[in-house]
Design a protein around this nucleic acid. Sequence first.
DNA 1: GAATTTTACGCAACCGTTTGCGTGAAAATA
DNA 2: TATTTTCACGCAAACGGTTGCGTAAAATTC
Lengths: 344, 344
Amino acid sequence: MSKNKLPTIKEIAKRLNVSASTVSRALHDHPSIGLVTTMRVHKVAKELGYEANKMAIYFKERKTYTIGVIIPDLSEPFFSAALTGVEDAAEASNYNVIIGQSLDNFEREKKIVENMKDHRVDGVLASLTKETSTYEHFDSLKKYNIPVVFFDRVPNRKDINYVACNLVSGMLQAITKLVDIGHTRIGLINGPAKLAATLQRLEIYFRCLKENNLPVDQDIIVSTTLGKADNVKAIDKLLSLDEPPTAVIVFNDYVLLDCIATVKAAGLIVNKDISFISFANLPIWEYMDSVPLASIEQFAYKQSSMAAGFLFELINNAEKPNAIDIPPLQHIIDSEMIDYTPAK
Amino acid sequence: MSKNKLPTIKEIAKRLNVSASTVSRALHDHPSIGLVTTMRVHKVAKELGYEANKMAIYFKERKTYTIGVIIPDLSEPFFSAALTGVEDAAEASNYNVIIGQSLDNFEREKKIVENMKDHRVDGVLASLTKETSTYEHFDSLKKYNIPVVFFDRVPNRKDINYVACNLVSGMLQAITKLVDIGHTRIGLINGPAKLAATLQRLEIYFRCLKENNLPVDQDIIVSTTLGKADNVKAIDKLLSLDEPPTAVIVFNDYVLLDCIATVKAAGLIVNKDISFISFANLPIWEYMDSVPLASIEQFAYKQSSMAAGFLFELINNAEKPNAIDIPPLQHIIDSEMIDYTPAK
DNA sequence: GAATTTTACGCAACCGTTTGCGTGAAAATA
DNA sequence: TATTTTCACGCAAACGGTTGCGTAAAATTC
């Protein structure tokens, strides 16, 4: 039968006939409290099993030592790795992490932000929904002095804190590699037009072709809405061309899984009849028999833990009275091509 | 330049020359406050953009509307699905979720529990570390009236709340299926001896063999410490027998991935020379060419969301004054065999 | 022994909100 | 007009801990 009441400072004070302030100071070994009193306080505290109610302290400090993380979908290894990055960083700073999955739904994202505001998190890390194109819900956090750092899926704005990944380096390595081993007809299966990531890939694709002196052929640029049926349709379209590409850059690993299944069903052999480059979301390629030639690593953990670092910087800066309006914290990590060929 | 001060009840009170209590009541449309006053309060509140500081309320209520979830490793799809289950349940009850990954490390688990206690979560959901065999750290939460519900990896005790998964049903289906299609020599690659899950699988394995009138052969029962090298060793041992098993129950999907790779490297064909049954942790089998014959589903989402339901029940009950010591909430979900054969 | 410093502690406010109780004034009743 | 009821609101305590300031008593200095 656990007593409903936890020992408090007042309880200790009552037992020793001293004031609560004396107890508080004694517990912190404040020099202005006599040695005997201090010792007696500690003794009673131990007897009662006293532990400070951090919630009371946090409330007074107007802090929660909690940050919120908003991510689209935990079932994607990319985001669960990202969450782990946040958690590790938070643990090191003695912060807690509350999570919210937007499931790529804008309304959910808004609700989550609202909820985190209500819970007065000290800061927010966010990776945007595919649908998100307005940011008032995040802007509203400024009113509460809750800093926000975005990562990976970041708003297309200049005045924000973010850590993102630059696909150029990885894609350039990948396409150059394809060219090196003889590919001259490199297709692209891109994502939905409204995604920033889609436009980004397209631009870089063009750029990388140009750097390798390859012509652009609109026929080998297709797109998918990321649904399975549409993925299959996209690769089918490429395969049915008179002159199909010999290599394809694929929007992400999930799309690629469907592509590979389709290619195999068509009796073609991956990495012989057609090769793929994808983006590293999935950790299971080493166990697959048909794999992309290479994968572009976007460093989820690194991105998110760096974003968390930014966030703690902002949180700590906000406490300083020298309220210098520091410029936005921004960092872009270079992607890297991960070569899968030696494994074979 | 955001004002550092958020509007409070006192601020509104000052502006209207009324007391804070009047404002508070007016905001809640309490009948004892006059209509004009109530309206003026609402007006000023709107002007100032007042929003109640929930932290203050929660502090007064001695609640946080936050529950903690302790899981071994988010990178395992099983646990990320479980976390999603918790989050969905929490959202429905207007609770927040803070997470802690134990990484199967007992000391970390203890620290996480400690931390959650400090943050005065209203309840804890936990899936144990592989190393956990004592439970004082969880017991200590009773002192703070923080209920705990375990799921999937639960303590071997009677006096706890839990939701677990019964492997019997799934394994019986699986072994019966193997027998039905002609297998009589069914091996087992089990996990480390100290794991409860290992003993459990072994017992059920014996039981299922008996129910199918199959003899026990210790030669085809091996174990692995779950490391890659050891996984390979385990399957190699079986393959090198004079009379290898034609089917093998494998501890989990991760072990199975290594087994399949080894089998293929040995020139054998999965589902022809040797078949496997595993436990459904990984969602990617549909994209693999070599898959287990069937997989035993343990319903991560269902387990965790049901556990969350139990937890909220306990939290709500604790608030009622009728402190009936309700018996532990316990539920066991039947596992199910998921057949992969029709896919081929 | 008087003046000054040091020691050791208490008071009260504060964080933001809620709520039991009390009270003056207006309204209703006798 | 005197008494009771209703209305509309304020006071103060409470949640648990922290902290600036004030002060009585003891210790030190001259």
